[in-house]
Each structure stands twice: as C-alpha cells, then as structure tokens.
Design a protein around this nucleic acid. Structure first.
Lengths: 336, 336
DNA sequence: TTGAAAGCGGTACCAC
DNA sequence: GTGGTACCGCTTTCAA
C-alpha cells in the first residue's frame, strides 16, 4: 500500500506539505504542488480511509436508509438510490446501504461508530420513526420526502402542490373549464405525504381560477388500471375536457385506451397532463405532457444540503421544494 | 462519543482487556467479560470505525459493484442488492455502493484507499472487465454470476444447467415425450452466461432421455410476450405436451393465455415448468411449477465465500453452483 | 488472566 | 511557503 511518506519522499517534501497540497487546505507554491500531484499520480496514491477518518474526523461516507417495504415500486426506488449515489460521488462521498429491518437500528449503529458523515433518508412516510431519531442525532441527516412533523429536519422534495397547480394553469390557459384529476390509490392519501399535497394543489388552483374540478382516487394497486379506465369514461361522459394524471404507468395507458374507446382524440377533444411521474410519458402511443418527479433533481438538492451541513458543521433545517418543470409533448390543446 | 477508555474505566479494567473481551480474540475471565459487556451496553459503546480500520486493518465493509445498464431489470436487481446487503449484515459487514459509470474505477478507488475488506460483483457479463481487475487485485472479490474466463476467480451462481435438466427430468417422469423450451430474447445467448447454460442443460438432458425437444428464444424484450404467445401456439399445434419456461414474467402469462386460447388445460393437456425465475410463479391464475433463481441463496453463498476469504486471508478460487430447488405447484401432470 | 505501550496512516496545529 | 509532531481511538505485541 502506498502511504503518504512514499509520496513525500518522491516529491522531496514533508508529509504535511503533501497533505496540504492534496487537500488544498493551505496554500502551496505552484511548483511543489505540481511535484506532489505528479508523485501521487505516479504512485497511485490515495489516502488511507481509516487514517483519514481517525485523524480528520471525516469519513467521506454517507449512509442511505431505505426500508424495502412490500409495496415498494422497484424501478422508482432504484432510480432514487442511483441518483443519490451519483450525486454523492460528485461531492466526493460514497454511499453505505442501510437495509436493517429496523431502519432506526442501522442509523444508531453508524452514528455510534462514526462510520458516516451524514445520512440520507429515502421513502419517507408521514409519521416516519426516523424523523425523531434524526432530531436527536448528531449526524447531519436529510430527508428526501416530507414527514408530517418537519421540526428541526432538513427535507427535500418535489413541489407536488405547485406541480398540480401549474398543470391546472396550463389547462386553464388552453380554455378548459371542466377538469378532473385521477389520483393515487385511496390509501396513499393516508400513508404518504405527497399524494395529499398534489391533490391540494389541484383543488386550490382550480378554485382560484373558478374551474369546475373533480378529483378521484383509484382503488388499490392491482385494480388501479381498470379503475382509471372506468373513471376516465365517467369524466368524458360528464363533459370533462382536461385531465390531470397523478398515477402509475399502467393507469396512464388505461386512460388513453378509455379516450380511444369513446372515439375521442388527444389533444383535439381531451387534454392530458401527467404530474409527478417518474417514468417517461413521451413514450406512450400518445405522448403525454408531464411535470415529472426527477430523482436526480431531488437527490442533487438533498446532497447539496447534506454536504453543506457536514462541511459547514451547521445544519439549516427547513423544507426545500424542487421547482416543477413542465415538459410539453403536445397532449394539451385548445378547448374545442 | 463513547470511547474504549470510557468502557475500561467503568468496568475497572484496562483498555486492552476491553478490546479482547469484546472481540473475543483472547480468553477473558467470565467475571470481567460480563462487567465489560455490561459497561459497553450501558454506555452504548461501539468501536470507532476509523480507529478500527486503521489499527485492525479491517474495515468491516464490502463494496458492491453493480453497473446500472439500460436493460437492467429493476426488481431483480433490487432483490440481489437487498439480499447481498442482508447477508453481509448477518456476517457483520456493511455494504458500500459502487455506481461509477466506469465500474473498474470504483473498484480501483476502494482498493487503493483500503476502504473495504472485499468486493461483491453483481450483474456479471461474459467478458466482464471486472474479472481482469479482480485477478490483479489484492482485495478479495466474489462474482455473483459467471464470466467466460473464471481463472483465479471466486464465482457463485445458480446451477442453471442443472435446473433445466431437472425440469426435463420432471416432465419425462410424468411421461411427456415431446417437450419444448421457451428461452430468453436471442441476444441474451451472446450477452449473458446463464442463458446458454440453461439451454445446454435442457438439450443435453432431453437427448440423454431420448425425448423430442425444441428450443426457441424470444425476440427482443418489448415483443417477448407476443412471441411467447405465438410460439406456444406453435408448440401446441405440433403436439408438444411439456414446456419449460426460462423467460420473464409477462411471457409466462402469455403462455398461459395461449394454452387457454387453444381450449387446453394445465396440467391436464399441457405441463409447465418455470426455470430461473426470480418472481413468484405461484401467483398466476394457474400456478406454475418452478425451479427459481433465489437471490438470497446466491448471495448467502457468495458472502460466505467472501467472508471466508477475508478472515482466513486466503481465497479459494472456483465456481460454486447453488443446487436448484424444485417447487411444485401442480402444473405438471401425467401425459394423457 | 491482565496491563502497558507501540504503532496503524493520516490531519492540522505550531514553529520557523 | 514549508516542516516537525502531537494527536485521532483502537488492535495487538510484549511483559508480568
């Protein structure tokens, strides 16, 4: 194993100068800096992780806690893990997976052993037990998602209310006066925080604009697509001309099928906007405008917060909402 | 932070005795052992990770490299990551995620910095570049999957050939003489190692038993289900009475649909065995016998190998195949 | 059966 | 701008 002394010797300087030259924590003359970097590169030197942790009180590792529940949607979940990991690497941190059945146990463990500099919490539920733990922890922690009680917590999430609101805006601009929203399975309005926020944004903005607006949740997951089909037919038969979708992928297809079944066309007769989807809505037979949930955005912001907290040694609690981004694929047209 | 001196003080012994009592690397009298464990528990003591790495030359962390390719099947992938992580924890190790675009880069990094005690390689391709790296590495590495050249490598995988062979056995025992196998998309027979092995086991055993046997791959993923439907009809029309499935979930449904479409019944007219599936085949409308790919089995075996190599400081190269396990759900019946 | 003390390989303070 | 060195908290050898 190549040690810092090896680099120092080869560059003809002291080990402290090597340390400073590589960390940049103290000015070093251009010439020595180059010599040192060259030597380090030639030797393939990387500081020993353990020594760095011990002496520097910094591990350059973040823990990622993610309870794998039975209802976990694997593709979304993976996208978030991957996005978090990539964002972390960009800041020079590695990700340690915390998969203990009891998620608080893993957090306690890494905290007590000083294994990580910070913790990223995924898959946040409204009354998440990890919230309380984070409050009493000395390890900076960021939530990707929003629990009910956010006191003293750093949270990052998509602005779901803003997203549905701007979907309503878009439909209103196009002249639609009677709109509807298809939501998640009803249970999600109890077990998640984002579903109600999305609904709220829809209702509030529709009221502000004086639109006639209907909201319908789906029933449980396995029947969601059938539900979406049936409810869409209902909407259409009631003269709805703009629909906001906040559902999983299969229901999107079902909605398109229902519209076709009535002999109608998007966007000629009906306009569609998908909100908070993590999949690609431009790939459907009929591409659908989207205000997507982009894991990369949420995670990048979360990591910035976390790195800041770690390196400034001071956490700034608060909920940061990612600004929704409208992606136009031509599924919204003027009201006939 | 609670340090070892705190525990030593509270237990009234020296720090070396605490270290030995907790690691068990040296006999300690029953009485002191108890005192020390009590003190440690009361104080919530866990050894500092950095200090342990530095002094003990062991990090208790394994790296997990998993290139996320576009064709990655998220649910399977997640199941393997989770299984690996759980198996690792059971052995007292944590998992560090390596998601660099260039997978060898991450491996080099953790090796040079001594961040991990070992490496787990997932999603192995036939000519995996990580194989060469593992050979020249001093960090013990285990492959979950089998590359073409396994010289000097530790590999673990399901015995796919054995699995299809025993599926053939089961059909032969039930009196079927004309059987068929539905395989993966054709490309997988070039880009993966397990697909050809499964095909091989099917062909060889059928030949040994003198059965009339047909093998058909599917076309690319998005048309797989349609293919499966069509090919199944062909099989049935040609008098095939036993079918081995080595495909993803949707094609299983398509096969069942095709059988129904011909007015036939499982297992009265046709017998079915699924091989190497990672999903639950007992949940279909018609439950299907299965010789599954169980991530927990592969990962548990892989972790045992890796832990052994790390703790005995000696790797024992070789390919360990997990013995297939036949799960009977009543989809195989006697040949009419 | 137990204790004292020498490292492990860096970081960062203090001098110059 | 650069170098010497006292830690960081644990493991493990050596001695008792």
């Amino acid at each position: 194993m190549v040690r810092i002394d090896d680099v120092a010797k080869r560059a003809g300087v002291s080990i402290s100068t090597v340390s400073y030259a590589l960390s940049g924590k103290r000015p070093v003359s251009e010439r020595t800096r180059e010599k040192i970097h060259l030597a380090a590169r030639e030797l393939g030197y990387l500081p020993n992780a353990g020594a760095r942790m011990l002496a520097g009180r910094r591990t350059h590792i973040f823990a990622l806690t993610e309870p794998f529940r039975s209802d976990t949607h694997a593709p979304s979940h993976m996208a978030f893990v991957l996005a978090a990991s990539i964002a972390a690497r960009r800041h020079g941190y590695d990700i340690l997976l915390l998969t203990d059945e009891d998620s608080t146990q893993g957090m306690r463990r890494v905290e007590a052993s000083g294994l990580v500099d910070g913790i990223i919490v995924l898959d946040v539920s409204p009354n998440d037990e990890r919230a309380e733990l984070a409050r009493s922890s000395h390890t900076p922690t960021v939530f990707v998602g929003v629990p009910d009680n956010t006191d003293g917590l750093m949270c990052v999430d998509l602005d779901f209310a803003g997203a549905t609101a701007s979907a309503v805006d878009r439909l209103a601009e196009a002249g639609h006066r009677k709109i509807a929203m298809l939501g998640h399975p009803a249970g999600n309005y109890e077990t998640t925080n984002y579903a109600p926020r999305a609904r709220q944004g829809f209702r509030d903005r529709a009221r502000e604009l004086g639109l006639e607006a209907y909201f319908r949740p789906l029933s449980e997951a396995q029947f969601a697509a059938e539900d979406a089909y049936r409810l869409t037919l209902e909407f259409l038969d009631n003269g709805v001309t703009g629909i906001v979708l906040n559902t999983e992928e299969r229901s999107h297809k079902a909605v398109l099928d229902a519209i076709t079944a009535r002999g109608l066309d998007v966007p000629r007769d009906v306009s569609l906007v998908s909100v908070g989807s993590i999949f690609d809505t431009s790939g459907f037979h009929r591409a659908i405008d989207s205000i997507p949930l982009v894991p990369e955005h949420s995670c990048e912001l979360a990591l910035q917060e976390l790195v800041d907290a770690v390196e400034k040694q001071h956490v700034e609690p608060g909920v940061r909402l990612v600004t929704p981004e409208y992606r136009s694929y031509g599924s919204v047209g003027p009201h006939a």
